[in-house]
Amino acid sequence: MDSFFFLVILAGAIAGASTGLLGAYVVGMRMPFIGICISHSAMVGTIYSILLGVNPVWGPVIFSALSSMSLGMVRPGRSRIDANVALAIFFNLMLGLTFLGIGLMHGSRSEVLGLLWGSLLFVKKSSVVVITISGLVFAVFAALFNKELKVLLFSRTIASATGVHESFVYCFFLALCGLILAVNLPLVGGLMIFSLITCPAAAAYQICKGHRSVIVMATVFGMASAVIGFLVSYYLDLPTGACIVIVSATIFAVSALYRTFRGQWS
């Protein structure tokens, strides 16, 4: 194997681990759609940065931060609209803006289409540094606000009613969610990132007991999905993104079967 592929595997492992860790919170809050929503808003940011001829680094970060803040305004029990319905409407808007942007583009659209599927095979060292830093920032946040995040996972209503500084922690979480998704988007792609957020975390929730084990296993499953998916695609000469998605779904299926045959919840 070429030494370059070790960089690809490293990038995949870090992207998988950070999205897996993020997924543990997103899935636990019953908002898996938030990942695809924010990643698509990051995609909109990139497309319109390219269209306007400005630096495509800031567009996705600004757009995903704005969309995170908008989603933060949807309050449980206080908003007239269900959070998941709000996410679905937001996603449709982002999808519409994405295809409008693609339609307005002249010349090659490969750069933009790469955002849908990702371009893990064209990863640069600088990108690995950026996704590592963003992943570490999120991990530090999760460790520092562990006690508050646990209450938010269990019930945002309880968190809010009992003075857990729910608004502050939730908005901080959404902002970092936007950051993680924006920096991983060019590598993983808008479609695959959804799979890496939901499947590893959902698998961990199937088999784990206790919050800490969920966090660890979601991170490990995310990393394993990306690395195994890449190795399968390399040796069998198959599309990388598709292999990663299938591996992550398989990990979930095996976990669900394990829980079923173990036959207990404890």
């Binding site: 636990g28 646990k150 996972l153 269990f154 019930s155 009613a161 502050f168 929730y205 919050h211 969920v214």
Partner: peptide, 27 residues
């Protein structure tokens, strides 16, 4: 929001089941 959270510190609130996620594997 900050002061409100501080005031609520001593409110023990037990909502109806629909408002918490009983499926999470918290011990």
């Amino acid at each position: 929001a900050w002061s409100k959270a501080n005031v609520r510190k001593h409110i023990g609130y037990i909502p109806q089941a629909a408002e918490y996620n009983a499926e999470l594997p918290f011990t």
